[in-house]
Design a protein around this nucleic acid. Structure first.
Lengths: 217, 217
DNA sequence: AAATTTTTTGACCACTTGGTAAATTCCACG
DNA sequence: CGTGGAATTTACCAAGTGGTCAAAAAATTT
């Protein structure tokens, strides 16, 4: 009843232009700042004011680009998981087993070196019991299950030591991400003014030895 | 000028009695609740109201027992570090090298199993860059340095594989604490209704194999 | 039981927090 | 140029925050 007259000229089409240069730049500024803050303090411990300050934008302006705090966090988490799952997908049934695992370890360690904030963001989420990413964890499980089958085959073929594949993944994740998540501790214990890159170099060599020893059939 | 008359009976001595039964019970209630909350949300993300509710005491009553939020946190951190350092101290120069390390790994894993909240409290602190525990980290470093010397001796004597001792510790900490800190992920990936104890059982066997393989000279 | 001390509460406060609304400024395009 | 939408700011709000204080209620001592 009494529908508003649909004026063909004014009502339709012209959605606000998305992805102007300004949009892109500011969304980038915001996510960059948010990553910094969220990765340190977790979702609850971070405030829009902190993100606003770090990004150089005002708080209301932040909320012009994102509906609310949670939406910013969501975007970061979603991005992160893509990056995180990639190396796992690349484990190939065609490669040499020990070599494939070693390559996986190396890729994961590179991620920890190059994206420590993403690693900490993930860690924060886990510590809180992963309330916001149950769905994504299921996706991870599916992928892991697939690779577990592959590894079991390798073990059966005598090409890998008989290690529980699930816990093998856990230990790889733990050791590599440790260098990002517990950087404060690693630095405090090593202390020598040794450069970050150098530390990761040594870590790579160590992990290689440790896992090669454990993996060889 | 005009000092209040010092009545010898009323003014002196009688400090308020500490450690009444009520004091003990309530301080325990508070630290218990605080551990629960802080281990989930970190210092910034936790609120006195949450702790008050979980402990069953009112917020002003909380602050009757502790000066402020930070003091509660401090107490938890201090307690935790004692427990955490203990197993490291027990690594003995008199034991069989590989066996000593294996025992250390087992003890650490037991801690992760029995005190997951403490582990997460520590992890939260690390993620934030360990602002409140620089001092304690130094204490840790001193202890680690001592054990590093011991391990280097063992390596020189051909009783251990030639692995960087610092990174050996890192990998042990990482793998064991992972089961407490990333429990949400471990559960999601394993999923089988497998009981917690069973998981730790499997983890213990896995870590034993992995490190034995890597450590043998 | 009275006096004293310990414990608990209720009312409050200043500041922070996530978020909104309207007004204003900026900017591309005809 | 001016005009319409995009971007930004200003002013604001309700709820949450860490923390205080004086008074009431319990316990304890005398």
């Amino acid at each position: 009843m009494n529908p508003k007259r649909l004026d063909l000229k004014t009502v339709p089409s012209k959605e606000p232009r998305r992805n102007t240069r300004i949009q892109q730049r500011n969304r980038e500024l915001i996510t960059e700042a948010a990553l910094e803050v969220f990765s340190l303090y977790g979702f609850r411990g971070s405030t829009l004011d902190q993100i606003a300050e770090r990004s150089g934008l005002s708080k209301p302006n932040l909320l012009y680009y994102f509906k609310n705090k949670e939406e910013i966090h969501r975007l970061l988490i979603d991005r992160l998981l893509e990056t995180w799952l990639d190396p796992l997908k690349e484990i190939s049934a065609d490669g040499e087993p020990v070599e494939e695992i070693r390559k996986y370890i190396n890729r994961k360690l590179e991620l920890a070196r190059d994206y420590p904030r993403e690693s900490r963001l993930f860690a924060n989420e886990m510590l809180q019991g992963a309330p916001r990413i149950q769905e994504e964890l299921h996706e991870l499980k599916v992928l892991v299950d697939e690779k577990v089958v592959l590894i079991r085959d390798w073990i059966k073929a005598g090409k890998l030591a008989d290690l529980d594949p699930y816990h093998l993944f856990f230990s790889i994740w733990a050791t590599t991400q440790h260098y990002a998540d517990f950087d404060a501790q690693v630095q405090a214990v090593l202390e020598e003014g040794s450069a970050r890159d150098k530390r990761f170099e040594t870590a790579a060599q160590f992990l290689d030895k440790l896992f090669t020893g454990g993996l060889a059939p």
